Amino acid sequence: MIQNVEFRFEGGRAGVLLIHGLTGTPAEMRLVGKGLNRAGFDVYGMQLAGHCGDAEDLLATGWTDWYDSVKAAAERYAAGLDHLFVAGLSMGAVLALKLAADRPDLVKGVGVYGATFRYDGWATPWYGKLSFLLPLIDRLGIGRKRMVYENEPYGLRDERIRAQISSLMLGGDSAAAGLPGNPWPSLAEMYKMAAVVKRDLPKVTAPCLIAHATEDDIASVGNAHLVERSVSGPVEMLLLEDSYHMITIDRERRLLIDRSADFFGRIANTTADGARAAA
Rank of each mutant, 00 (worst) to 15 (best):
K192G: 00
P180D: 08
I249G: 02
I247R: 04
T214Y: 10
I210A: 03
V221N: 01
H212I: 09
G222Y: 04
W184D: 06
K198W: 01
G233R: 09
E252D: 14
N182L: 15
N182W: 12
P183D: 05
L209Q: 09
K198S: 05
S243A: 15
V204R: 07
M190A: 14
D250P: 00
M190Y: 04
V204W: 06
M193C: 13
L187D: 02
A206Y: 09
P207R: 08
L240I: 11
T214L: 12
S186L: 12
M190V: 04
K192R: 15
P202G: 01
D217Q: 06
E215F: 08
G181H: 02
A224C: 10
M193H: 09
K198P: 03
M246E: 12
L201S: 02
H245Q: 05
A219Y: 08
S220Q: 07
A176Y: 02
K192E: 11
L239E: 00
P207A: 04
P180E: 03
H245D: 02
L226V: 04
A194H: 07
A188D: 05
G222D: 15
H245C: 03
A213N: 05
L187A: 13
D242L: 01
K192I: 10
H245A: 02
V231P: 00
A176K: 15
A224N: 09
S230G: 01
L209A: 05
G181M: 08
A194Y: 04
H225N: 11
S186W: 04
P185L: 06
M237C: 00
E252F: 14
L179G: 01
E189W: 13
K192N: 04
T248R: 06
Y191R: 03
E215R: 12
K203T: 00
A213K: 07
P185A: 09
L226H: 07
R229D: 09
L201D: 08
D200E: 15
L187V: 15
W184Q: 11
S220K: 12
P234G: 00
D217A: 10
R199E: 14
R199H: 06
G181R: 00
I218L: 13
R229S: 14
T248W: 04
A211D: 00
E215T: 11
L226N: 04
I247A: 04
E241T: 15
H245G: 01
D242H: 15
L179Y: 07
E252S: 05
I257M: 01
A213E: 07
A211N: 01
S243R: 04
L255Q: 13
G181Y: 05
I257P: 03
V204C: 07
Y191V: 02
A224H: 12
H212Y: 08
V227M: 11
N182Q: 12
T248M: 07
